[in-house]
């Protein structure tokens, strides 16, 4: 079935381009939900007023349980991605860690992009260099947050003071990075009005032409040759 193997984003028109396939959107939704569960329950731990408020509205709620359910979902994301869109998963991993000359140039001018200036940035492919860095960060710090979290979850009683301190520190720092990444993520979504990519799956071709000219080119080349990979 094409749906599971192909990276083809064939359905596009003059106005709109298919940016994220349904599988990718599903994975993103699971990731976002689980991450918010984890963040929320984690914040209840860090910030007692939140805990007290939650307990006053929902006395039987267990932050620990939310955190554990969230953790299971969160850890299931890579598996889910491989299951529903193996190609997309591979593409994400490969692209996030591959940077060309344009990417380096783009990063040098990232400040401009941050301030809302997409026009005139060096030409980018499916992902711009910022997104690549973001994805790479998510991959790396998800791994550290997961492993330190697993240690805190299952190795309790065996860690000892030093092990606990290390695991908790890694867990906290990883989550800090991921949270800042999330804030940035939401920021760019807002600035470049990119939410539709994750809701409908489509982006206006016009925007894509500005931000990802190489990708649009590639898509057109693909549809011209009728080839998928």
């Amino acid at each position: 079935m094409n749906f599971f193997r192909s990276c083809e984003n064939a359905n596009h028109s003059e106005e709109k381009l298919l940016r994220y396939r349904v599988g990718q959107r599903l994975v993103h939704a699971v990731l976002a939900t689980s991450f918010l569960m984890l963040l929320f329950s984690g914040l209840m731990v860090l910030w007692p007023p939140l805990l007290l408020w939650v307990r006053s509205v929902a006395p039987d709620i267990s932050p620990g349980l939310i955190h554990r359910i969230g953790a299971v979902l969160f850890m299931a994301v890579p598996m889910l991605y491989l299951l529903v869109d193996r190609c997309g998963a591979r593409q994400l991993l490969v692209e996030s860690f591959t940077y060309d000359k344009d990417d380096i140039e783009w990063l040098k001018h990232a400040w401009r992009y941050f301030m809302g200036h997409a026009v005139g940035m060096p030409p980018q492919g499916r992902l711009n260099a910022g997104q690549k860095l973001h994805h790479a960060g998510v991959v790396i710090f998800s791994a550290t947050v997961v492993f330190s979290g697993l240690a805190l979850w299952f190795a309790k009683g065996y860690l000892g003071p030093a092990g606990l301190a290390l695991a908790a520190t890694i867990h906290g720092l990883s989550m800090l990075v991921l949270t800042v990444l999330l804030v940035g993520h939401l920021y760019f979504t807002f600035v470049y009005k990119a939410l539709s990519a994750m809701t409908t799956g489509y982006v206006p071709k016009e925007e894509a032409m500005i931000e990802h000219p190489k990708w649009v080119e590639e898509l057109e080349h693909q549809s011209a040759s009728g080839k998928s990979f």
């Binding site: 860090l46 910030w47 941050f114 301030m115 809302g116 200036h117 997409a118 908790a168 520190t169 906290g172 720092l173 989550m175 800090l176 949270t179 800042v180 804030v183 940035g184 939401l186 920021y187 807002f190 600035v191 470049y192």
Partner: peptide, 27 residues
């Protein structure tokens, strides 16, 4: 780590909040 986590998260929200308005306008 703990104060940094809360602080930096807050800071990033603050910065991006302000920046968002400017950047969105710029864009």
């Amino acid at each position: 780590v703990q104060p940094a986590a809360v602080g930096l998260t807050g800071l990033s929200v603050l910065v991006t909040g302000v920046a968002a308005i400017i950047a969105r306008r710029n864009h």
